[in-house]
Design a protein around this nucleic acid. Structure first.
Lengths: 201, 201, 201, 201
DNA sequence: GATGAATGAGTATTCATTCAT
DNA sequence: CATGAATGAATACTCATTCAT
C-alpha cells in the first residue's frame, strides 16, 4: 500500500474501497473489475483510491489478503478438540460454505482469475502454508499421529475436493442445498476414515 | 460461424485460429485473450480471423465446443463393461487428467471465466446432460440398479470433486503426480462403493 | 451525455468538442466524421471526448440539438408584427441563409445524412412541430385567418423550397449571392400572396 | 472503368452490379454502401466486381452517370411545344417525382452524399450544363425570348426549389401526395409567369 | 488530503483491395 | 475470366493512471 492510513477517516476510506472492490470482483469477475467502478461504488474519487493503492494489483491483493484471512478465521473456529471425523468434516464444510456465501464467486475469482504481485499461490506462501497445515493436522489427528508426507497429499485431496464441489455448487446456485452438503461430508469422511491404512502405499 | 470455409486453405485457417485461441486462452486466461494476439499466434491477419468468426465470443464458443467434445470423447473411451469400481474410476481420472494435459487451465477458463452466448452451463445444455449422465449411469451401475435422483447428486459430487482436485493440481503443476492420482481414485472409489447404502438417506 | 461537466474546465472541453464536431461534420460529411478527428481538431484527447459523450451518436445528437436550437432562435427573431409578406419572407430567407453560413453543408448533413438516436425527423418531434408551426402561422397570417389544413401543406412547400434553394446555393458556393436571395424571396412571396385564393382547392 | 466489357456476359455482369449498387446506395446511403455487399447482392464475386470497376469511386460514378442520364431522359420527354406554363411545370414535376420513385433517396445520396472523382457538381460539368440549360430554355420560352443571365438564376431557383420540395417529400413519405404536387406546380408556375417583368431588376 | 478532468495506449471490428487458385 | 481467401490500415471505444486545482 502506498500510504499507511493513520487517521480514522483514512482507515474508513480504505475499508470502504476494499468492500466495494470485493463486491465488484465477486459479482462481475476480474474482467468487470475497474478501478473507476470501485471508486464510484465506494463513493470516493478515483484520486483518493490511488492515494491508498498505488495500482490495481495492490488493490486486488488487499482484497485477497482480507478474504483469505476471513477464510482462515472461519476455519480456525471450526476446529475443536474431541470431534468425531464426521463432525469435524461437517464443521469444515459448513465453514467453507459460509465463506462462499457473501459473494459466491469471489473466492474463485481471487484464487483463479485475478492476477497478483504476491505469489499467494506459491506452495510456500504464508496463506497456503497455514491453509494446508490446517488440513494436514486434521488428517494426522484422525490417524492418531503426527502429520507426515502422505498426509500432505491427503490434505490437498480433501481441500481441493471440497473446493471443487463447493465452487461448482455455487456456479449451479446449489450452495445451500443440504443434500449436496451432507453428501460432500460423506465423501470426505469416508476418505479420512480409511486414510490411515493405505495412504502410505 | 460467419462463413463456412469451402476451400481446404480456409479450413486450415479456421483450424489454426482455434488452436491458437485455445493456447492463449489456456495460458493467459480470458483477460489475456485478445483477437489480435490470437491472429498473430495463428500467423494469419486479423481480417482472416473475422472472416470466419463474427466476433470474439463466437471464437471462444468454437474453442469451447471443440474442447468439450474432446472431453466427452475421452470420457466415452474410458467406459467399458465389466470394470470394477476402482478400475472405472481410475480410467475416468486418467481421462480427465489427459483432457487437462494439453493446456492445463484451459478447461477452467472455458467453464468459469470466459463468457458465452450459448448457455452450455445451463443444466439442460447438450453437453451438461451428456456429461452428468455419464456420471449418473456409472453411479447407478455400481449400485446394480438404474440411476435415480440421489444418484444425480452423487454424480455431481463425484464430477465436481474430480474437477476440483485436478484443477488445483494443474494450478500447482502436479497434474502428473501419481500419488495425487491414486489418492483421488481412492477418494472417489470409497464414496462410490459406500454409496449404495446411504445415498438415499 | 455521460457526465455533466461540473468545473469550468470541463464545460469548455464539451463546448470545444461540439464546435470541432460541427466543423468536421459540415466540411467532411458523416462519412468523414470520426471521433478521433474531432478530438484532434478540438485539441483534446480521445478519452476526454468519451468522458462526456458515451458514443459517436450522442455527439452528433448534441451537435444537432445545438444547431436546430440556433436555427429556431434565428427564425424567431425574424418574426415581427406588421410586416408585409415580402418583408416577412425576406427576413426569413436571410435568417436561413445566416443559419447556413457558419458551416454551409452542416444543416443538410445533420438532417439528411447523419443517423440519430432521437427521432428529430419525426413529424411529432419538438423541433419539427415548432419549425412547421412557424411557417403555418405565417401562411395563416397573410391570409388573415387561422392556419388550417391547406396551410399546413403550404407551409411544407415554402419551407422545403427555401431549404432546397439555399442548400443547393450552398453547394454551389452561391450562398451570399444577392440575386439568388431576392429571386428566392420573390418565389415565395408570389406563392404566399396568391395562396389565399386557391390553396383550398 | 478498368475494362470495356465486350462479350454479352460481361455487359450483363456490369449491368447487374450497377443495379445492385443503386439499390444499396438508395436504401442504405453512402455509409452502408460497401463493395462486398454490392457484389453479394449482384450475385457476383468481389473479384469480378473489381474486374470491371477499378475502385469504389468508379462504381459510384457509373451509378451516378446512369441515374443522371435517366433523369435527363425523363425530363426531355416532358418538354413539348405549345404547352402552357402550368402544363409544362406539371409535366416537369411529374417527371422529377418519377425519377425519385424507384429508389427514393438515391438522387440525394448521389448528389449530396457520395464522393466522386468526376466533378459532376461543377457548374461546367456536362450534366449540370444540360440540366440547367433545360430549365433556362424553359424560362426563356415563357418570356418569349432567348435565355439570358437573369434567366440562368431563375433556372437555378426553379430547379432547386423543385429539388427541395421533392426531396423533403420523399423524406416524409409524401412523394405521391397529389396536394403536394399541385401546390408545387403552383409555386413554380406563379414564379415563371411573373418572371418576365422583374427578373432583370 | 481530496477531487475529477485529462490522457493515450490498447482492443474489437470493418472494409477496400489484391492475388493465388 | 471468375472466385473467394487473405490482408491490414482505419475506426469506435475503454480504462489504468496522472496531476492541476
Amino acid at each position: 500500500m502506498r500510504k499507511e492510513p493513520r487517521q480514522a477517516r483514512s482507515r474508513a476510506t480504505v475499508e470502504t474501497v476494499i468492500q466495494a472492490g470485493a463486491r465488484i470482483l465477486g459479482n462481475e469477475g476480474w474482467a468487470g473489475f475497474t478501478t473507476n467502478k470501485v471508486a464510484d461504488l465506494a463513493g470516493v474519487s478515483i484520486g483518493s483510491l490511488y492515494q491508498y493503492f498505488p495500482d490495481k494489483l495492490s488493490l486486488v491483493d488487499a482484497i485477497r489478503r482480507r478474504h483469505l484471512e476471513d477464510c482462515l478465521a472461519v476455519m480456525r473456529k471450526s476446529k475443536a478438540d474431541g470431534l468425531s471425523p464426521v463432525q469435524f468434516v461437517a464443521n469444515l464444510v459448513h465453514a467453507m460454505v459460509d465463506a462462499h456465501s457473501i459473494y459466491p464467486g469471489l473466492h474463485r475469482v481471487l484464487l483463479d482469475e485475478a492476477p497478483s504481485s504476491d505469489d499467494y499461490r506459491n506452495p510456500n506462501s504464508e496463506f497456503e502454508i497455514e491453509y494446508l497445515n490446517y488440513y494436514a493436522e486434521a488428517v494426522g489427528a484422525y490417524r492418531n499421529r503426527l502429520p507426515n508426507g502422505a498426509d500432505h497429499t491427503a490434505a490437498l485431496i480433501i481441500s481441493d475436493a471440497i473446493d471443487g464441489v463447493i465452487h461448482n455448487a455455487a456456479r449451479r446456485g446449489m450452495l445451500t442445498d443440504s443434500t449436496m452438503q451432507s453428501e460432500l461430508v460423506r465423501l470426505v469422511s469416508l476418505y479420512l476414515a480409511d486414510a490411515g491404512d493405505e495412504a502410505t502405499a
